[in-house]
Design a protein around this nucleic acid. Structure first.
Length: 404
DNA sequence: TCTGGGGTCCTAGGACCC
DNA sequence: TCTGGGGTCCTAGGACCC
């Protein structure tokens, strides 16, 4: 039996949610109606466009470009800061509403969900349900969504991306040639800015061109990705809606520094704050890490990273920091570098329950574990930023510890 | 006042073993 | 003394997503 899938996508999510929240707090203007963006902080060198209103879009402003460029395109642009705490609330509200329609629901990102409605339709059609959801979200939550209606996730996602805002689109098999094949190949999910020029060189310009291209040739040129893009262009996708909670595969935090830094000891201070954050999140999930990865971005936007195994699987701030420090030093002694961004990530995570117990029981380890746990409890109670290591305040101020 | 931060997955090449 | 082939594990980097 064919699956019945919906993809729900919030229109200009961060901007809409900010608008709704401002209105709720008595704002006389609706920033959805003016040229406005949600932007990062230029002083912290993270000045990019995170979301834009339709009027801002009409000026030619694009997501992820710099605020500097956006302002040139639109001199009377209004800029508002992001607030992820609020976004999570609105996202949760949407999720709750959608959960009334099916148990098989996947949160694909903060502003997107897939719904498998196959066994939840009774007498109504999939399209009817989509219309009902669209109406209810607008009336009850105050913002609009686009909904894609199809028989698999890929087509539902493509459909929700057609004309915006506040629209419901179907994309059934027989509609693929008329609705999808005419689109430029860059519109296809999973085709990014590296692959598109290569396809252009092969005279593949529309999704239709790609659908009719030789699958074997694509595989030779692009490997697995080649097969995937051919299948997507032909509307083939058998992925399930993943409704079960899954543990993350990696946990990382990174920060663009207010100024470039070349001094290793200063970088180590930042690394410690990052390790604290990462290890805290790791412990919250009851996971242990097997590898640590340190990423650096130089002032010239060159990225390098080093990774290494941990001596034991761990969620200890100290263990992770010590390994990260070694990796940082390895990289920094290779050549003189001026660092713009530093990141720390842990990979190969395992459940704490399946931890391979070390042959040696180590008193020092146990002491550290207790210390971490005590700090975690205080953080839970008083907020992440309430508790900091002595002498680390300045680092935390730099990090402005985002939202955990 | 140029260019975020959080992820997932894949690939190529080296080391090492039999 | 010119020498293979398969398998696994590990790392660095790239591509893509929102």
């Amino acid at each position: 039996m064919e699956k019945q899938i919906l993809h729900i996508d919030v229109n200009n999510a961060f901007l809409s949610w900010t608008a709704v929240d401002m209105l709720k707090n008595g704002s006389p203007i609706d920033i959805r109606e003016i040229p406005a963006i949600i932007g990062g902080d230029e002083l912290k060198r993270s000045g990019i466009v995170l979301a834009k209103s339709m009027k801002a879009k009409e000026c030619g402003i694009r997501t992820a470009e710099t605020i500097y460029q956006a302002r040139i395109k639109c001199p009377n642009l209004q800029i508002y800061p992001s607030n992820f705490k609020i976004y999570r609330q609105y996202s949760d509200n949407l999720y709750k509403l959608l959960s009334q329609y099916t148990d098989i629901i996947e949160r694909f990102s903060i502003d997107e969900c897939f719904l498998d409605m196959t066994n939840y339709l009774m007498k109504s059609t999939l399209l009817d349900k989509a219309m009902e959801i669209s109406k209810r979200v607008k009336e009850e939550l105050g913002f609009t969504v686009n909904i894609g209606v199809a028989n698999n996730k890929l087509l539902a996602k493509m459909a929700s991306d057609f004309t915006k805002p506040d629209r419901v689109h179907t994309l059934y098999k027989e509609e693929i040639p008329t609705k999808m094949w005419k689109l430029p190949v860059s519109e296809l999910f999973m085709l990014g800015k590296r692959t598109v020029p290569k396809l252009y060189n092969l005279q593949i310009k529309t999704i239709g061109d790609l659908a009719k291209a030789d699958k074997k040739m694509l595989e030779r040129k692009f490997g697995k990705h080649g097969i995937l893009m051919w299948e997507y262009a032909n509307g083939i996708d058998n992925e399930e809606v993943k409704y079960k909670k899954e543990n993350p595969k990696c946990i990382g935090n990174s920060i663009t520094l207010p100024q470039n830094i070349s001094d290793v000891s200063k970088l180590e201070e930042i690394l410690l704050a990052l390790a604290e954050q990462v290890a805290y999140r790791l412990r919250k999930y009851d996971l242990l890490a097997s590898t640590v990865n340190v990423q650096l971005r130089t002032k010239d936007f060159e990225d390098t990273s080093h990774q290494g195994k941990l001596p034991i699987q761990t969620a200890s701030t100290k263990e992770i920091y010590n390994r990260a420090k070694e990796l940082l030093e390895q990289m920094m002694k290779q050549k003189e570098m001026s660092i713009r961004l530093i990141g720390l990530r842990v990979d190969n995570l395992i459940d704490k329950k399946q931890q391979q117990l070390s042959f040696f029981s180590n008193e020092e380890e146990e002491k550290q574990e207790k210390l971490d746990k005590a700090i975690d409890e205080l953080k839970q109670k008083y907020g992440y930023n309430a508790i900091t290591r002595a002498g680390k305040m300045n680092v935390d101020n730099i990090l402005k510890l985002k939202d955990i």
